[in-house]
Design a binder for these strands. Structure first.
Length: 888
DNA sequence: AAGATTCCG
């Protein structure tokens, strides 16, 4: 608190008596509020368990599958099966809904195919030109000897590149030595064994890249045949036999014994060992649930929690949602009978608010701990603390390799239990020299593999949608040029924003005699697994989000991946047979330029909500909270400072009643404050819609390349003259008026998926508003009230149009700009409030709304003095008459 | 005049 800027009020000593009184009163009210919450929770648990124990298996399974349908990452096989089943079964509402969904999907899908084709033809010439240019560029950069950032490309100036250190050039440099040590076989040349193939391939391809084979990623499965048979047999194996065939099975008894003997155990097991599905069952069988307590297991992803729970329910032959269940946001599929509960890490984190001692659990398993999500990182500290006063609680931290030692140290030297995985060896190849243009290098490598390597699908890791699109175009162009001399190459993109049906294509089996290339973002690193990948191409980059707590600005940058990430990528080649991974960087770069591990999320993002939740859990000293890797000090200070300014903490750093209410919302504290403020301004209906729209990450407007003009005019039809918050409210309300129609979204260039999500979020928020005792009321005719409520939450995010002709933030006096997508881009009002600050090509404010400065004194008198809000010039700002001011 | 990586509550 002491770091607050001096221009803000500080309570003066003379106030202190009455201040003490109000503080005591507030804390009393807070505790009473908390008590009411607890009571409501108990009632809710009763209700839920009554209703869900009645629920039939079919119903539960259907719910799961419906959710799965909605998700993008489920195997199409499953989808087809489930669709068929539905059609044969009862034709209840759910089925009709599902059919509609499918029909809608196909409708959208057909359209996108058409436009794709159109686009391809139209841009054919353009692509050729681009290709030529890029080749030129690559040649120019040929001499560059350094692992570099990809955004350097395109700047086109040699001078921007740093040449290698002189040392590295020396004949006996460390690099050389090291590489020689590592190299097992000589140069790996494509098709070297087959002279004929080699000749043919030289004719086809005018470029090639030399690779060097270095280390091998150890596997423990030797022959493919063996696996093939077992794969075939697996289908006919009984569940019991399948369970026995898992690598974890032989360790069953030893594992149970270890858990009996130690309170905390680190389980190190590779994927495919069966640990996630089997260990909870072993513990259940061994009597860990006899006392009426549960076994909990957290997962970083929703799909994982659902599908693993479904699998375990099947193995145990029980109804999903009864003895085995799962709990994720928007959906709690558990009952009072549940003894094995899978959930997302975020769900458990929130659950702490209602059950801070995990009293209903006998064992808690934190799975996939190596992924180091924000939530698991916080759970580490919380759960470690609990084991101190609950000796009966067992704790398992489950992680894939490498990090186990670190976890062990953190958890007071807990023993490490190792379980082997099931994986085939992967040979790793590095480039001999660094590649100047890794997109081009990817294309060349794909073709090299295609021309010379035995059949098997290829997975290429790129950083984003745009890169993937250009790479797809390049590959299409070059394969066309090569013609029929090579076998068919099926080129498929995958990234999160790709429509569901396009995503599903990557799961379709590759036709006989053809080869599939999947161009993916790091979505393919963990979130989805593609069968039959034999070759992986890894340029070594990914996009990463970073939060700068000094400026409060987020940025998305391309950075080199970590060694851990590189190995995860390589591992994707060894799932069905021995594979090969081609790294488009040198062995030297891998060894010396890549970090061991990716910086954990907790050190890279805004911690506002996390800090509030911890405060609500009664953890007052956050600076000394037991973090595995502590977040930057400034990030914590900023979060605390903001919470104080928002009134969530009092000047003693204690949680206030407002803070306790805010903690109920799974959102950024400022957004939570805005929701609370809607009570005073009688516009909770509108604010809840705005909040829901703000939390779907700006992917509401759809903007296909070939219909940019249509999309932009469609977007402008929603514009509100006072700004973006009211614009997105317009979108939501009109969509609701259309009865949540898919067709409406399509016509208005709105992403249906985002809207659906906004609707889910909105429903949840409405429930939470009731929980924090706020009535839902509407004030649609008065946008001033709505804007005041927004201001009450976001008074930290104010910018003022200055004399220099640009905006400056009030807090940091930092020059920022209105994002070109904003409704106010051409308006330039004097005072604006913004939702977020993002650094891309410039410092942009995203989601901007006009306000009046006097409101700041009304909503945040403790934070603003009238003096600093005075306009330095008395002249009115000349306003551009926006052609786009199209109000409702 | 910009441009979406990925999860999670």
């Amino acid at each position: 608190m002491e770091k607050r800027s001096k221009r803000h009020h500080t309570p003066s000593p003379s106030d202190s008596d009455s201040a003490e009184e109000t503080r005591a009163k507030d804390i009393k009210e807070r505790d009473e509020f908390a008590k009411r919450l607890r009571k409501r929770d108990e009632e809710k648990v009763k209700k839920v368990s009554e209703s869900s124990s009645k629920r039939s298996y079919e119903e539960a399974a259907k719910r799961l599958k419906l959710e799965a349908e909605d998700r993008d990452k489920i195997l199409p096989k499953l989808r087809i099966q489930s669709r068929r089943k539905y059609l044969q079964k009862r034709k209840d509402d759910k089925v009709i809904e599902l059919e509609d969904d499918i029909a809608d999907d196909e409708y959208l899908f057909d359209e996108s195919i058409l436009t794709e084709r159109e686009k391809r033809e139209r841009e054919h010439k353009k692509t050729l030109l681009q290709l030529a240019k890029e080749h030129e560029k690559a040649r120019e950069l040929e001499n560059v000897q350094r692992y570099h950032m990809p955004q350097d490309l395109g700047k086109g100036e040699k001078g921007e590149y740093i040449e290698v250190d002189e040392n590295e050039k020396l004949p006996n440099s460390e690099q050389r030595k090291w590489e020689q040590e590592q190299i097992k076989s000589a140069f790996f040349k494509f098709g070297a064994k087959d002279a004929k193939a080699q000749d043919e391939y030289e004719l086809l391809l005018d470029e090639q890249i030399d690779f060097i084979q270095a280390l091998q990623l150890e596997g423990n499965q030797e022959k493919k045949d063996e696996e093939k048979i077992s794969e075939y047999q697996k289908a006919r194996l009984t569940i019991e036999e399948t369970k026995k065939s898992l690598p974890v099975f032989p360790f069953r008894d030893a594992l149970i014994e270890a858990i009996r003997n130690y309170q905390i155990l680190i389980v190190e097991g590779e994927t495919g060992s069966g640990k996630t599905t089997q260990i909870p069952q072993y513990l259940h069988e061994a009597g860990f649930t006899d006392d009426g307590k549960k076994i909990g297991c957290t997962q970083p992803r929703r799909v994982a929690a659902m599908s693993v729970a479904a699998r375990v329910a099947q193995e145990m032959n029980v109804k999903l949602g009864n003895e085995v269940g799962y709990s994720i946001r928007f959906e709690d599929c558990t009952s009072d009978r549940t003894v094995i509960k899978y959930m997302t890490d975020g769900t458990l984190h929130r659950e702490f608010l209602s059950e801070p001692d995990l009293a209903s659990y006998s064992v808690m398993i934190i799975d996939e701990a190596h992924e180091r999500t924000l939530h698991t990182d916080i759970l580490f500290g919380l759960v470690k603390d609990i084991t101190r006063f609950r000796p009966d609680l067992k704790l398992l931290i489950s992680s894939a390799t490498l990090d186990a030692e670190k976890f062990s140290t953190f958890f007071d030297d807990a023993p490490i239990f190792r379980i082997p995985g099931r994986r085939f060896p992967v040979n790793i190849y590095y480039t001999k020299a660094p590649e100047a243009d890794y997109i081009d290098a990817c294309v060349v490598t794909v073709l090299q593999i295609h021309a010379t390597q035995p059949l098997g699908d290829i997975l290429v890791f790129l950083t984003g949608q745009e890169e993937i699109e250009t790479c797809v175009e390049m590959l299409q162009e070059r394969t066309k040029r090569i013609g029929k001399k090579l076998k068919e190459l099926i080129i498929l993109p995958v990234y999160a924003n790709l429509p569901t049906d396009m995503q599903a294509k990557i799961f379709e089996p590759t036709p006989e005699g053809a080869r599939k290339v999947v161009l993916a973002t790091n979505i393919a690193e963990t979130s989805l697994t593609i069968d039959n990948i034999i070759y992986v191409i890894d340029p070594g980059f990914a996009k990463q989000n970073n939060f700068n707590s000094k400026t409060g600005m987020e940025s998305l940058m391309v950075v080199p991946i970590s060694k851990a990430s590189a190995n995860q990528r390589a591992g994707r080649a060894g799932r069905v047979a021995a594979g090969k991974c081609f790294r488009l960087y040198t062995a030297w770069a891998y060894k010396h330029e890549l970090e061991d591990n990716t910086v954990p999320e907790i050190q890279r993002i805004n911690l506002g909500n996390a800090v509030l939740t911890l405060k609500a859990l009664g953890i007052n000293d956050l600076i000394h909270f037991d973090f595995l890797d502590p977040p930057p000090h400034e990030t914590l200070v900023l979060a605390l400072e903001q919470l104080y300014a928002l009134g969530a903490l009092n000047h003693h750093g204690e949680l206030t009643k407002a803070g306790r209410r805010m903690a109920e919302f799974p959102t950024d504290p400022m957004l939570a404050k805005m929701l609370l403020a809607s009570e005073k301004y009688k516009c909770s209906e509108e604010i809840v819609s705005i909040a829901a729209m703000l939390s779907v990450n700006s992917s509401v407007f759809y903007r296909p390349k070939d219909k940019i003009i249509h999309a932009d005019t469609a977007r402008k039809n929603f514009f509100h003259r006072h700004g973006d918050h009211l614009t997105i409210m317009n979108v939501y309300n009109q969509w609701a008026d259309s009865d949540y129609s898919v067709q409406w979204c399509y016509e208005n260039f709105i992403q249906y998926r985002s809207m659906k999500r906004a609707r889910d979020v909105r429903e949840q928020l409405v429930g939470l508003m009731e929980r924090v005792e706020i009535d839902m009321v509407s004030s649609i005719s008065d946008d001033t009230n709505i804007r005041k409520a927004i201001t009450a939450g976001y008074f930290y995010h104010i910018a003022k149009f200055s004399k220099g002709g640009h905006y400056k933030t009030v807090k940091h006096n930092q020059t920022v700009m209105i994002h070109p997508n904003s409704a106010l881009f051409e308006e330039l009002p004097r005072w604006v409030i913004y939702h977020e600050l993002v650094f891309t090509s410039k410092e942009f404010m995203r989601q901007v709304t006009e306000i009046e400065s006097k409101w700041l004194l009304e909503v945040a008198p403790h934070y603003y003095k009238s003096k600093e809000l005075e306009d330095s010039t008395n002249k009115k700002m000349p306003k551009t008459v926006g052609k786009s001011a199209n109000n409702f």
